[in-house]
Computed example of a mutant assay.
Amino acid sequence: MKPFIFNTTPSIRMGAGLLDELGDIAKSVCGDRVLVVTDPGMMATGIVKRAVACMEKAGVRATVFSEVQADPPEAVIHAAVAAAQGMSGVIGLGGGSSIDVAKLAALLATGTQSLSDVYGVGMAKGPRLPLIAVPTTAGTGSEVTPISIVTTGASEKMGVVSPMIIPDLALLDPELTRDLPAAVTAATGVDAMVHAIEAYASASPNNNPVSRALACEALRLMAPALERAVQVPHDMEARGDMLLGSLLAGQAFANSPVAAVHALAYPVGGHFKVPHGLSNALVLPHVIRFNAVTAPDAYARLGPIAFPELGGLETAQAAAGFADALAALSARCGLPSGLRAVGITADDVPLLARDAMNQTRLLVNNPRKVTEADARAIYTAAL
């Protein structure tokens, strides 16, 4: 067995209704002056108010920063860092963007580094404030990853990748995902499945047996649960399976990094303001078909785990069937089936392909080399 590294969140707590224990948990991990990082949509749900009340009851003074945007720009990071000054800890409460902002607020509030210092892999050195992540979507897995994504300029995304920003504790309460709109449930769910798929097939030298095992279990849980969660929102078994699957997929790709699906999805989101999960869903089957030409084995193994009806097929058929089944699942969950549905035309393909080539951190992990011409062909197929 080749050497590998596996890092993850030191403490994970999961259970329905666990948010009501956040006060005591926050006090023990983050101290008595806590910044809660969230977004305006979460503020409207009542979940933030409930969390703050719970903390106040436990003697924790909670300040709320609610300016997070999807695909957060640098200005939001700077504002969150300013709000974290003088705090004893930070809690990210919301979707992946809120947790990503919380990670950087906890890191940069100590004043030892600036945002420009920490872009890239291994550049964040710390120290940081204590950090808790409370996800309210089953999608990004950010509660267990060493990654935070920031929008720089008008559309380009850059990553901060370092074990230093892995949260100290992840609190998973399936009840917090119960009232997600169907479209958000579907898009974030496919995003989580992409994490598992890309982690399993990753060409990263750190692709490892732990990540592959987690990826398989994540897909086994999520493939049947996603459609149920979309169609029956209060199916708490489905919600729990999706939330746990998302976490497992997050652990997988945190250590065996994602590749071309994400590389091609980022320009779609950056230029056309398409939510990240939906961007992934739109290009996923087409990237798998491209990769399967030279590297079908991983997809052939994953196919029957997610979709048992693919069992018994030979390798090429199973890999092709996996791509088709994923596309069909997205369609049944109500997601658009092509890039044209989100306003992208053939004229936009060259721009998207050029920008995708900038995602070298991701493309290096793809099991098949992607040229700019390949990216154009994948986008064209996805129209």
Rank of each mutant, 00 (worst) to 15 (best):
A58G: 09
G41Q: 06
A106Q: 01
A105S: 01
K49A: 15
E56L: 07
P40C: 01
V68I: 05
K103C: 02
E56Q: 15
V64L: 12
S66P: 06
G92Q: 05
E56Y: 04
H78Q: 13
C54M: 12
R50H: 12
G41M: 06
A44V: 01
G89W: 00
G95H: 03
M42W: 03
M87S: 12
G59T: 08
A62Q: 10
M43L: 14
A44I: 00
H78G: 02
A102C: 03
M87P: 02
A83R: 11
A79T: 07
S98I: 03
F65P: 09
T45N: 07
G92M: 09
P40L: 00
A105D: 00
A75F: 06
S98Y: 02
G89M: 04
E56D: 14
A44R: 13
A83H: 08
G94F: 04
I99N: 01
V60S: 10
G94M: 04
D71G: 05
V48E: 02
A53S: 15
K49H: 13
K49S: 14
I91W: 03
S88Q: 11
A58T: 08
A83Q: 13
S88F: 03
E56V: 04
E74I: 05
L104H: 08
G95W: 02
A70P: 09
S66W: 11
V76R: 14
V48W: 00
Q69K: 15
G94P: 04
A82G: 11
Q85N: 05
Q85H: 10
D71Q: 14
I99S: 04
V90A: 02
A44P: 01
A53F: 10
A58K: 10
K49Q: 15
A51S: 14
S98M: 03
S88V: 04
A82L: 12
